[in-house]
Structures are given as structure tokens and as C-alpha cells.
Simulated assay, not measured.
Amino acid sequence: MKLNKIHHIAIICSNYERSKEFYVHTLGLTIVKETFRAERNSYKLDLAVGNEYQIELFSFPNPAERPSYPEARGLRHLAFEVDDLDSAVSELEEKGIEVEPIRIDEITEKRFTFFADPDGLPLELYEK
């Protein structure tokens, strides 16, 4: 088997409109397609991340909460690459998003930090 790249990342949110606002207006992702699936009473929002990746944002009635932060089994966090970490952090903070202190990756010596989406999903900014 030859895996070429990651095709998409799926996220289930608790409040569709709040999460849509966060991912589109706070993070600046582009809407590719929005679909309401009546049989599931669920939205699926396809969001472009740059030119290569896509996030699928799902809403479902009464989804279970994340068991812990961030060390639960399963997806640990989602990381976005940025050119200028200081600028990205400032932009998030100006929008009222709490951001952890910037740290240095001891292996790559690159700078990174964490913040959370409206449901507490850990998101990382990793400097290029």
C-alpha cells in the first residue's frame, strides 16, 4: 500500500453555528461545500486548509464529550503550520482566543503553541 497524503480530518462539534463561525471567521478557513443531511439531522461543512488539506466539520444531535484534554485515546490534537507564530498568536488573542505560552519543540527546535476550538479540541500552531 502507498499512502500519498492526508486527505481530510473530520471533527464533530457540539454547536454547529458556533464552530462554523470559529473555523471560518476566527481561523479564516474557506468553505468548500456545506451540506445538510436531513436523515441524520446533521450538517457537514467541508473547509479548505491552504491548497492541500481539508477539514470536515460535522454536527450530530447530542455527541459525547471528549474524555480528557489532551491525553485521551484517539486524535490528540490538530496542528496548523504558520509562517509567523507571533503574528498568528496576536491575531487569535485579538479575537478573544486564549493561547498557551509559546514553547520550543526539543526535537526540531521549532516554536509552537496550543489553543482550543469551541468544543475544547486542542489545536496547535507550529511555526514553519
Rank of each mutant, 00 (worst) to 15 (best):
I102L: 02
F114T: 00
T35Y: 15
G50L: 05
R37L: 13
E91P: 11
E127G: 04
R18V: 12
T26D: 06
E94K: 14
L92T: 00
R66A: 07
E17N: 14
K44I: 11
E65L: 15
N4Q: 12
L123D: 02
P118I: 01
R66Y: 10
V82W: 07
I97R: 07
Y16S: 06
V99A: 01
K110G: 07
H25N: 14
Y16K: 08
A48W: 07
L3P: 12
V99T: 05
A10E: 07
A38S: 14
E81G: 13
P61Y: 08
P61E: 08
E56R: 08
A79R: 09
I55V: 07
L29I: 00
F112A: 03
K110C: 08
P101M: 01
F114L: 00
D119L: 03
T30C: 13
G28K: 07
L78V: 09
V99F: 00
L121T: 08
V32Y: 14
L27W: 07
D105N: 10
V89W: 05
K95R: 04
F36H: 11
D46T: 15
R37F: 13
Y53L: 10
F80H: 05
T113G: 00
R111T: 00
I31V: 13
H77A: 02
H7V: 09
Y69D: 13
T35I: 13
S19H: 09
N51R: 15
S14M: 12
V82Q: 05
R111D: 02
L78G: 06
P70Q: 03
C13K: 08
L47N: 04
I9L: 10
V89H: 02
S14Y: 13
H8I: 01
H77N: 03
P101K: 05
P122I: 03
D84E: 09
N51Q: 15
K95M: 02
E56I: 03
N41H: 15
G120V: 01
F60S: 14
K44E: 13
F114P: 00
K2I: 09
P67G: 04
E94G: 12
S68L: 02
